[in-house]
Design a binder for these strands. Structure first.
Length: 616
DNA sequence: TCTTATCCTG
DNA sequence: CAGGATAAGA
């Protein structure tokens, strides 16, 4: 505190990647119209609210402003937990939109009078490029994915430059009037997801080694090419040892291989015809994902059913001791050591390594599925435990729904009993609508419900959400839901979860403002002098807020995000924008719309045990 | 009208 | 962190 933000300024060396000295930081984000509008609106507000309890003369557009298109609804396309995307998706999701011309238009250029829209375009384009470059440059360490991204980046840039040229002058008038929103729509950032392909590639028991990189199979043809053989051999190896599941696994893998081939072929075709690679890719991905998921599910289900039936028959007919039929195949995905790291030692500002490998979620699904089915099938075996849990439930919530008492909560292990700190987290939400007959899905409010999942978000979930914030600042509700599989979501708890993230952002931005002002006060003269590293004061503040016990190692990219945010705030403040009514709005908007700064959330967040690990 | 997102207050 | 007010997109 005393020394302000020394670390931030630490290296006052404008690193090479930041050659780009002068893009008018927000000029394009602050069209004069908006300001005019602001003054109008605010005056209205103040006049009307001046009297009594003050109608909170709000900053006019403020509140919901940055809200950008319906993330949620659009994203529902990918909603089914098997989300799509690739390593590069966060950065480039926006250009998947076919409507190229609009793409480059940044939201705020609603200027109907815009005589120089082209210039703005160029600016914007420049901005995007610049940021991409920066980000990429700074996360050099990130392996192969990096290269792919570069490739794509190049393509992206070139294509867009062409487009820009083509578009030339004509397009000033017609769409410049279309609401900024519609333009933004084309941006619609849609990330989410983790590559299923990968998961399977790595699904082999030898997690540690197995071809980490492969993951990105889908982005380029070559990569898929490379991956294929590896996968095949790995799979074959698998097939060799597979005794119990040999059959099922064979089918399973066969399906997978088929998918891969499909993918490959498609990729080649795509290459040949050079047509909108992006689109094809995404479509392809979706398709593969779907079919693959289906196949997997089916195969696994089959196998489980078989195993279960086997088990049952074996029970009936006294046979050889056949204790645990389904071998605990892939239990330790994480070599005990560390799903949860600790902060890296302060000294390397740009630690290599990258974040955790996005592996093993197939296993989760698998195990979960297995569990579920077993639960269902051998329900009588579980009755006892169910009863126990019910008792618990009754204790914690006097008004526990008498419904579905027989339902077994296999979630016991997901959901550590002590976390039932109902007071102040769940129950009271409903006080307000005791009468309302509208509660359709309420029965689950106070605890477990048929499926065994609870609808109550606990402090553990909060912790987890905070950690997720390290990766994504603007998650949509579907993404969130997919990362809380143990929660049975209804309107209330989804809203709560979303609200959490809103609060997280609030804190985040407040810190940004604070430190930006500090930086300014310390005499920093240019945004490029602002640096954030993992031992920066600001970063520490954030870390203690979101990752108090260092449950995870902060993602490397986070520092970039923070730095970029901080710089934006710095610029805005430096230029006196902060006197304007809703000056932060534009920054929010920027980070929301261009939220390619969001990272992918590692898959281990979906681990059922993840919550438990957070307890310590 | 429903959603999403912010601001503000407690 | 939750609730309410509020704004704006769809």
């Amino acid at each position: 505190m005393s020394s302000g933000l020394p670390p931030i300024l630490a290296a006052a060396q404008p690193t090479a990647n930041f050659n780009f000295s002068g893009f008018p930081p927000f000029g394009y984000l602050f069209p004069s119209q908006i300001q005019a509008g602001n003054s109008n609106g605010s005056s209205q507000n103040s006049s009307s609210g001046r009297g009594f309890k003050v109608k909170r003369h709000r900053q006019r557009v403020d509140a919901g402003e940055p809200r950008n298109t319906y993330q949620g609804t659009t994203s529902t396309s990918t909603s089914s937990n098997t989300s799509t995307s690739s390593a590069t998706s966060t950065s480039f999701s926006k250009k998947t939109s076919p409507s190229t011309p609009e793409e480059m238009e940044l939201p705020t250029t609603t200027t109907s009078t815009s005589s120089s829209s082209i210039e703005q375009e160029n600016l914007n384009h420049h901005l995007l490029d610049e940021e991409n470059e920066e980000i990429e440059a700074m996360k050099v360490e990130n392996d192969v994915a990096q290269e792919e991204q570069d490739e794509i980046d190049a393509e992206y840039n070139s294509t867009h430059k062409e487009e820009l040229d083509e578009m030339g002058e004509e397009r000033t008038s017609p769409d410049s009037n279309s609401s900024s929103a519609s333009k933004r729509k084309s941006f619609l950032p849609q990330k989410i997801g983790e590559e299923l392909g990968i998961d399977f590639g790595e699904e082999t028991e030898q997690i540690n080694v197995s071809v980490g990189g492969n993951t990105t199979d889908d982005t380029t043809e070559e990569s898929t090419d490379d991956v294929e053989p590896k996968d095949l051999s790995a799979l074959q190896a698998q097939l060799q040892n597979g005794n119990h599941l040999a059959d099922q696994q064979r089918r399973f893998y066969a399906a997978f291989i088929e998918q891969q081939k499909k993918q490959l072929m498609a990729a080649q075709m795509m290459q040949a015809s050079k047509i909108n690679i992006e689109n094809l890719l995404s479509a392809l991905r979706g398709e593969v994902m779907n079919t693959f998921a289906k196949n997997m599910e089916k195969v696994v289900k089959d196998w489980i059913a078989e195993e279960v039936s086997k088990q049952e028959t074996s029970v009936v007919a006294p046979q050889v001791p056949q204790p645990p039929p389904p071998p605990p195949p892939f239990h330790h995905i994480f070599p005990a050591a560390n799903p949860l790291f600790h902060m890296v030692p302060p000294h390397h500002p740009m630690p290599g390594g990258g974040i955790f490998p996005p592996n093993f979620n197939a296993f989760n699904a698998f195990n979960a599925l297995r569990r579920n089915l077993q639960d269902a099938d051998s329900s009588d075996v579980k009755r006892k435990r169910a009863k126990l849990d019910i008792k618990k439930e009754e204790i914690t919530s006097s008004r526990a729904s008498p419904l579905s008492p027989s339902a077994s909560p296999p979630l016991g292990r997901f959901f550590p009993a002590p976390t039932m700190v109902g007071h102040h987290y769940g129950g009271m939400n409903f006080g307000d609508r005791e009468d309302s007959p509208t509660n359709s899905d309420e029965l689950s409010d106070c605890g477990y419900e048929g499926n065994g999942s609870s609808s109550m978000l606990t402090p553990m979930h909060l912790r987890k959400a905070k950690l997720m914030f390290f990766y994504t600042r603007y998650p949509n509700s579907n993404l969130l839901k997919s990362y809380f599989p143990d929660i049975r979501f209804n309107k209330n708890n989804t809203a709560q979860l979303v609200k959490w993230f809103s609060n997280f952002r609030e804190f985040y931005y407040i810190q940004m403002e604070k430190f930006a002002r500090q930086a300014l006060a310390e005499g920093i003269t240019d945004r490029s002098e602002i640096f954030v590293s993992k031992d920066s004061e600001l970063f520490k503040v954030l870390n203690t807020h979101y990752n108090r016990n260092n449950h995870i190692k902060a993602p490397d990219r986070l520092v970039l995000v923070v730095q970029e945010t901080l710089r934006e705030f710095y610029d805005a403040i430096k230029q006196g924008k902060d006197v304007e009514p809703s000056w932060k709005k534009t920054i929010y908007k920027k980070f929301q719309i261009i939220n390619r700064l969001d990272d992918q959330i590692p898959d281990f967040f979906k681990e059922p045990n993840f919550l438990e690990r957070l307890e310590t």
